[in-house]
């Protein structure tokens, strides 16, 4: 579904992405993991056609991003690093605008807006001006707009940044439910997130591919003999959820 071959992105004196090659199959959820400045956002921007590559080839859903950008953009739902909201619009108005941009037919728009805002958890703020929303809600609206039109491919740049642990769990559940029918590539620099959400993890550092495998494969290769239990990571969330629910007037 996503084929990247020898992708290089160079700015004047900085190489942001260096000879990156990988393939993401249909229906997979892949995590791009790496420290800040590793080239995750740059790679996603090239994938979605926002930035041109310096060299290399990128194909999404069978179309070359540089030669046939409109075909690619029709099939991709993208959440950039900063959710692209227009502060003076209401959430509902904004989602309807993005639906129009994506070319959804008139009849579908209202239903789609309701569907994605329900999935992303921002159905309650459709009437509020996005400039007034909290960071968490802005992020959720950003996720909602990426889901509009049910695109084949989802490219999400740090989708859970700014969300509290309970909201992160909801987004994770959402993304996992989308896998299979959709191909998802998301970036994060929080390893537990990658481990819990993604089937495979691609590790980037300084623009170069370090490794690309399932979590078990990575552990076997780099920390042989150790065992990682996902339950250990999830357990911290359980404690948090219990504490927060039990507190008087806690988040429900």
């Amino acid at each position: 579904m996503i084929e990247v071959r020898h992708l290089t992105k160079r700015y004047r004196d900085l190489t942001a992405v260096d000879d990156l090659s990988f393939t993401v199959g249909k229906g997979e959820i892949v995590g791009l993991l790496g420290p800040n400045g590793a080239g995750k956002s740059t790679t996603m921007r090239v994938l979605t056609g926002f930035l041109p590559a310096t060299s290399g080839e990128v194909r999404v859903a069978g179309y070359d991003v540089f030669e046939q950008p409109l075909e690619v953009k029709r099939r991709v739902g993208y959440l950039p690093e900063a959710p692209p909201l227009y502060d003076s619009m209401t959430t509902g108005g904004y989602l309807r605008f993005v639906a129009d941009l994506k070319g959804l037919s008139r009849a579908r728009v209202a239903g789609e807006v309701e569907r994605v805002s329900g999935l992303a958890g921002c159905g309650g703020v459709l009437g509020r001006v996005t400039g007034n929303l909290s960071r968490g809600y802005r992020q959720r609206v950003g996720i909602a707009q990426a889901l509009l039109g049910d695109p084949e491919v989802l490219v999400l740049d740090e989708p859970t940044v700014g969300l509290d642990p309970l909201q992160i769990r909801e987004v994770r559940a959402l993304l996992r439910s989308l896998a299979g029918r959709h191909t998802v590539i998301l970036s994060t620099h929080i390893l537990p997130e990658a481990a819990l959400t993604c089937g495979k993890v691609l590790v980037l550092s300084q623009g170069r591919l370090v490794d690309f495998d399932t979590l078990d494969g990575l552990v076997a290769r780099h920390l042989p003999g150790r065992r990682v239990l996902l339950e250990d990571i999830a357990f911290l969330e359980e404690i948090y959820a219990k504490l927060v629910d039990a507190a008087p007037g806690g988040e429900g």
């Binding site: 921007r45 926002f50 991709v76 993208y78 502060d87 941009l101 070319g103």
Partner: peptide, 14 residues
């Protein structure tokens, strides 16, 4: 400036 240009340029819009 507001980082919404990325939305316009990644949407299927000429």
């Amino acid at each position: 400036r507001d980082r919404t240009f990325e939305l316009l340029m990644t949407a299927p819009v000429r």
